[in-house]
Amino acid sequence: MTNTERFSLSMRLFHWGMAALILAMLTAGLLMVASLDGWQLTVLTVHKVFGVIAVLLVSARFINRLSQRIPALPDELTQWQKTAARLSHWLLYGLMFAMPVSGYLMQYFGARPIDVFGWFRLPAALNVDIHNYALFRELHSLLAIALIGIVMLHISAALHHHFIRKDKVLKSML
């Protein structure tokens, strides 16, 4: 596909920036749905705003990804391993879009406008649609669980390449 050894600076920045954002969002999500404490509202408010930022970031990242050359997968990998690697990366992109979109839609159908730091508000339905609320509320959770799973797979694969196979896959993103 290409002969570059390392991902471009913009791709590395997107990768690590979004890695931090995704970990923060998943952690916040898991903690805030269980908490009755005062910080819950604050974290929830920030979670929604960061969701707006996330959808903008992943859009820019996706365009950037399509416009750039990326390092080839190691030749030693079997065909199915290469397919799995590519598939898992497209799944990650899909989930990075689906998480904020499902989050917004559950707020939309719950008729809960999202306030972005008091600057502006994202619109919501005027009247609650409880069925669609339930659909996107549960979808948001299921997608989060899927994202946690695939992120763990992604991290395990990166560590496997680095420590077991001792190839350049992890280094290409550093």
Partner: peptide, 8 residues
Amino acid sequence: FAMSSTQQ
């Protein structure tokens, strides 16, 4: 009160 698409 559903005042508008951004105010509830």
